[in-house]
């Protein structure tokens, strides 16, 4: 199977590239990028061809693409790729508008290609284990969930609203909302949010927020998507979900498999993670779905759309000062 990567704008392209190189039966065929320098550098790094911008890659005989452009360019690339009959793994958030996300889903459906949203956290063994514990009913009925996905300001195009579509709330809401939807099997019905820019001066996007959610099945939840980790914080950030059920509680801290390194080199303490690499588990899953000609991927474009919808509702709530209903 031949797979290409469109754009190294998003840093996750590197871990996907590494994953492609380690999966048997996969040929990491080529790289497209609208920035020749960036594309060529990546091509040199991974020993593959740089072909120019994405139309050149679509003309090639490849089976699947991983799309890591800036958020706002996902729709253009994905729709063109669907028309060229390529299966697609698209970085999150799926798009910056619901209309774009919907058009991407329709284009892929019409061409009969897979569209998978890159929600790697679902594939982490600790998360898989939590899903099983919940399916076994170990905590009874879920009543409440508390999520966090904090991080540091990624800078670059992430803080250019024309390219990113939003700041911390868009960047860091979708992973955890996806987990919460998956865990509950229910959709977010109502979103309230406080959103602001408080950590970084003169940033054109938001860098912190707090979402309060209610699901269609009555589960209540909160989520913190802030870029609130200082430069000397021991790690980049976190993904946590705590679940309150009728029979008990279940606490998930995805990156807890770490040891502490106290180092005079860095001048502070760092978390040294020894857990599994979820990005390569995600890519392996996508490749398997393509290879087995599955009718739909493990995590769909629709899943990406639902998570995006919550993030966009959060912005709407913060603007209006009122809770926003979905659906």
């Amino acid at each position: 199977m031949k797979v290409g990567i469109v754009s190294f704008a998003h840093m996750h392209a590197h871990s996907y590239a590494n994953a492609l190189q380690s999966i048997k039966g996969v040929e990491f065929a080529a790289i497209a990028d609208d920035l020749p320098e960036r594309g060529q550098a990546a091509a040199d790094q991974y020993g593959v061809r740089y072909v120019g911008d994405y139309p050149a890659l679509l003309a090639e005989d490849i089976d699947a693409l991983i799309v890591c452009t800036e958020n706002a360019r996902h729709a253009e690339v994905v729709i063109a790729a669907a028309k060229a009959n390529k299966h697609i793994l698209c970085e999150k958030p799926i798009a910056t508008t619901l209309a774009d996300a919907q058009a991407m889903i329709v284009a892929c459906r019409e061409s009969g290609v897979l569209l998978q949203t890159a929600f790697p956290v679902r594939f982490h063994p600790a998360v898989q284990r939590v899903k099983r514990l919940l399916e076994q009913g170990r905590v009874g009925r879920i009543l409440a969930m508390r999520g966090t996905n904090r991080g540091q300001n990624p800078g670059g195009w992430f803080v250019d609203p024309a390219l990113s579509g939003g700041g911390a709330v868009l960047d860091h809401t979708v992973h955890v909302v996806d987990l919460m939807r998956w865990f509950t099997g229910s959709e977010v019905r109502e979103v309230y949010a406080e959103i602001d820019t408080r950590f970084h001066d003169s940033l054109a996007v938001d860098d912190c927020g707090l979402l309060t959610l209610e699901f269609a099945n009555g589960v209540i939840a909160s989520h913190d998507p802030s870029w609130s980790r200082c430069a000397s914080y021991p790690t980049w950030g976190d993904v946590t979900v705590e679940i309150i059920g009728t029979e008990g509680t279940l606490s998930l801290d995805v990156f807890r498999q770490h040891m502490l390194l106290h180092s005079d080199l860095s001048g502070h303490t760092t978390h040294e993670n020894w857990g599994d690499d979820m990005d390569s588990l995600l890519v392996a899953d996508f490749i398997r779905s393509v290879a087995e000609r599955k009718a739909s991927p493990s995590v769909t474009g629709e899943d990406g759309l639902r998570a995006l919808e919550v993030a966009l509702a959060a912005y709407e709530s913060a603007t209006s000062g009122q809770p926003v209903r979905i659906g």
Binding site: L143, Y192, L210, I220, S222
Partner: peptide, 20 residues
């Protein structure tokens, strides 16, 4: 202030609240 809680959900001695 905005808040969600489990009050009034017919739960036997279980309560949880998120306050923003």
């Amino acid at each position: 202030v905005y808040a969600k809680s489990l009050r009034g959900r017919d739960l036997n001695r279980l309560d949880h609240a998120f306050v923003s």
